[in-house]
């Protein structure tokens, strides 16, 4: 349906506006934005700022008052809405699984609408259940009421992915789960998107989630005005204004540490030291700092050597007041 280049399809919003009848001000006021192909862009902003409305205009669950939307170069407003929606994955906070259909039928619904042969649908359902870490033989035949909240969210994501749409719209898809499940789903989703590289718009009001998932973050204010649109690292290190800074909170530097993995920073000493507290290469620098603080140490061991406090400082572009170690590393290029 959409023209894909190698990376997927891009989404362009041009002067997009939605004024609900009877409302004093537009819910979405003249937003213009490009979402690059294959990237996950997070819309973050306070409740009521127009995130959902902006997103729903893209699959035309809300008809724009004015403006243009292009997906992969195609003018969305000239397409048949039902046909359009079959090519855009859609996942929402309340999931909205069909309770009278099995997990397999829920996931297979859009492929069936698109006329896939049953054998292909069955194979796709297997593949997707495995992808979202649900054992196919156990879950295929279950009904939504027989699933936990977290399992329903996973099925919701699998269903949105079913027909392999190049574009996904996700409205706080992990919002209704408990913190532990949410963290788990986020981690899985990061891994998933690394493989899939779909063009995704992800709505949340949780800035932590935005940092964790987004290739880029659009911080929105009332009326879906863009306060800042940039990579998480750039927003954290250089917030555009007080509004954005307020959203980030007091611990911007810690949040930046959380973005960098231990294996991405140069190490002080390439020889592993078993006497030091250890972190894995996959751990974030924030976790490494936590380990150092917990052990009262200015360094910790990694699988490939020794990581120092000075290297953490360098990674976020600052210098320790006093050189605590001799081998201060030059600021590693992060991200």
């Amino acid at each position: 349906m959409f023209d894909r280049d190698t990376d997927g399809v891009r989404i362009e919003l041009r002067a997009l506006t939605k004024h609900y009848p009877g409302q004093p001000a537009p819910a979405v006021d003249n937003i213009t934005m490009d979402i690059p192909a294959g990237e996950l862009v997070v819309f973050v902003g306070p409740s009521g700022c127009g995130k959902t409305t902006t997103m729903k205009m893209i699959n035309r669950l809300v008809e724009p008052t004015s403006g243009e939307i292009r997906i992969g170069g195609k003018d969305v407003l000239s397409l048949d809405p039902d046909e359009l929606r079959r090519h855009i994955g859609y996942a929402i906070q309340q999931v909205g699984l069909f309770p009278h259909l099995t997990v397999a039928q829920n996931i297979g619904l859009v492929p069936k609408l698109l006329g896939w042969p049953q054998a292909k649908i069955d194979a796709r359902v297997e593949e997707l259940l495995a992808l979202v870490s649900l054992e196919p033989s156990t879950f295929r035949g279950r009904y939504p009421r027989q699933l936990s909240g977290g399992q329903q969210q996973r099925v919701g994501v699998a269903r949105a992915l079913a027909a392999d749409p190049p574009v996904m719209l996700m409205d706080e898809p992990f919002g209704a789960t408990d913190p532990i499940t949410r963290e788990h789903l986020q981690n899985e989703f990061v891994r998933l998107q690394k493989q899939l590289r779909k063009t995704i718009i992800f709505v949340t009001h949780d800035f932590e989630e935005a940092i964790k998932l987004g290739d880029r973050i659009a911080v929105l204010r009332e009326g879906s005005h863009i306060a800042q649109y940039d990579t998480p690292a750039a927003i954290l290190s250089d917030p555009a204004d007080d509004y954005v800074a307020g959203f980030i909170g007091q611990d911007a530097t810690l949040k930046r540490l959380a973005l960098v993995r231990v294996s991405d920073v140069p190490i002080a000493d390439p020889l592993p030291d078993a006497a030091l507290p250890q972190v894995t290469g996959d751990a974030s620098l924030r976790e490494a700092l936590d380990v150092m603080l917990a052990h009262g140490s200015d360094r910790c061991g990694t699988p490939s050597g020794v990581l120092t406090y000075a290297a953490l400082c360098a990674a976020v572009g600052s210098r320790p007041e006093k050189e605590v170690s001799e081998g201060v590393m030059s600021g590693g290029e992060v991200r």
């Binding site: 699959n59 669950l61 039902d82 046909e83 359009l84 929606r85 079959r86 090519h87 859609y90 929402i92 906070q93 309340q94 999931v95 909205g96 699984l97 069909f98 309770p99 009278h100 619904l109 859009v110 609408l113 919701g156 269903r159 719209l169």
Partner: peptide
């Protein structure tokens, strides 16, 4: 009916008629 179920159905590209016949009436 749960509004989310209906919204999900519309969002997935079920036409109004199909949504009625395959989701709303059975539920």
């Amino acid at each position: 009916l749960d509004a989310a179920t209906v919204e999900a159905g519309r969002g997935m590209g079920l036409s109004r008629l199909r949504l009625l016949a395959q989701v709303q009436l059975p539920l």
